[in-house]
Amino acid sequence: MSKIIRKENLAENTKLFDIEAKLIAEKCLPGQFVILRLDETGERIPLTVADFDRNRGVITIVVQEVGKTTFQLGEMKIGDSLLDFIGPLGNPSEIEKFGKVICVGGGVGIAPIYPIARALKEKGNKITSIIGARSKNLLFWEEKMRNVSDELIVTTDDGSYGRKAVVTVPLKEILDSEKIERVVAIGPPAMMKFVAKTTLPYKVKTIVSLNSIMVDGTGMCGACRCKIGEETRFACVDGPEFDAHLVDFDLLMSRQKMYLDEEKKALKRFKGSINYGEKENTHA
C-alpha cells in the first residue's frame, strides 16, 4: 500500500499526486516509470515519473484523466492508498553533457520532461524548453520548467496563452538558427512523431519516451512491443526512451487503440457508478 500525501489540481483533468514510496524514490532516475494498481479489481497502468524526492521518500506522478483508472485515481484523496505501486521500471534517460539541448513537453508530457530537463541542466547543458498544450487550461509547471531552463517557450494551439503555435514551429526556428546537440520530447504520440519529422533533416539526435499499453512492465507480456528501425523492442525493458528517428509512430498509435471500445465501456460504467460527469435526464 502506498499513501497519497499530497494532491494538487494542475490543469483541466490533470492532477498531481505525491506518493509515499521510499524504496522507489531511493532508486528512481529521470525517465523511469512506475506501474500502479488502485484496488483488487484494478488494472496495472504505467506512468512516467514526474519527480522524486529521495530525502522524503516521495514519488510525484501527474495524471491526466482519460480512462476509468485515471478518473478513479482523480477521485482519491490525501491519506488514501494505492494498492500497488511498483518501480522504478525501464531505463533512465541518458544524462550527459551534450551542449545545447531542447526539451519539448506536450500536454501531460510536460511532467516527465521536467526531471529530465533538470538533470540535463545540472550536468551543464544549455537547455531550451518548449512546453505546449491545446489550450491555456491544459498548461502547467511553467515556473518549474523556467527554473531548469536557460530559455522557455510556451505555446498553445489556440493562442489562449503564450505563442499560438504547435511546439514544432519554435523547434524548427531554433534548429534553423543554431547548432543543437540533442532534442528530448515527451507528449502525445502525434506530437512526438512530428518532432521527429522536424529534427530529422537537421540530423539532431532526438529522444522520445513511448507510452505503450503495458501489463506487467517487466518484459513478460510483450503488450508494449514497438518497432524501432527493423527490430521489435519492448518499451518496458528496452525503453521507454528510444531514438525518435527509428520509432514507428503509426504502429504505436495503432496499438494504443487496441482497447478503445473496452476503455469507453469501463469509463461509462465507472461514471455511472459514481453518478459523475454527464448529467443525463436532467432538464435544468
Binding site: T41, G42, E43, R44, K68, T69, V215, Y259, E262, E263, K265, A266, R269
Partner: peptide
C-alpha cells in the same frame, strides 16, 4: 492474473 474474463467488473480487458 488480471481476471479479464470478468471484465468490466475487473478493469483489465
Amino acid at each position: 492474473l488480471m481476471k479479464a474474463y470478468r471484465f468490466p467488473e475487473y478493469d483489465t480487458p
